[in-house]
Amino acid sequence: MRSIRLEPTDAIGGVLVTLIGLVTAGISSQYPIGRISNIGPGAFPLALGIIMVLLGLGIIAGSVGRTGSIPQPNWRAAGVVMLSLTCFALLIGSFGLVPAILVSAFIARFADNRFHFRRVFVLACSLALLCWVIFIALLGLPIAVLELPL
């Protein structure tokens, strides 16, 4: 069987762009399109959606017959960054700045393999101190430093 060679980043990227274009065009056609002399809120995004579909198809077409590879994604790093930011978001409101920094810095260090508990603890504490100095003491941001919900 003869297989067609596709450059993977372009092929996947092109499909992604086409899909976004299709979804955009679909959503925008539900908004009022208006008349050409007075275009509604749907017209411009609809046009953009169509352009995006065309671009996506063009990118797919360009991938045919070339070879290439996708860089190995570091999903662990992406997941850890996401988790760290989420924990920060959940903690800062009810517990204040310092706990949020400690926890998110702690989680962030799980992104690679060199995890030493003591070093991470020192790092997290010094970060908390540094941020307190910069953001609270110097810039005076209205964020609670430490709160204990009872």
Partner: peptide
């Protein structure tokens, strides 16, 4: 990088005091 990350989080939170903003950045 933990420092940069914390810095981003505080920067975003300081704009609107919004938790959703911080998650959205992620």
């Amino acid at each position: 990088y933990p420092g940069i990350l914390v810095f981003i989080a505080i920067g975003i939170y300081s704009v609107n005091s919004s938790h959703v903003d911080v998650i959205m950045v992620g």
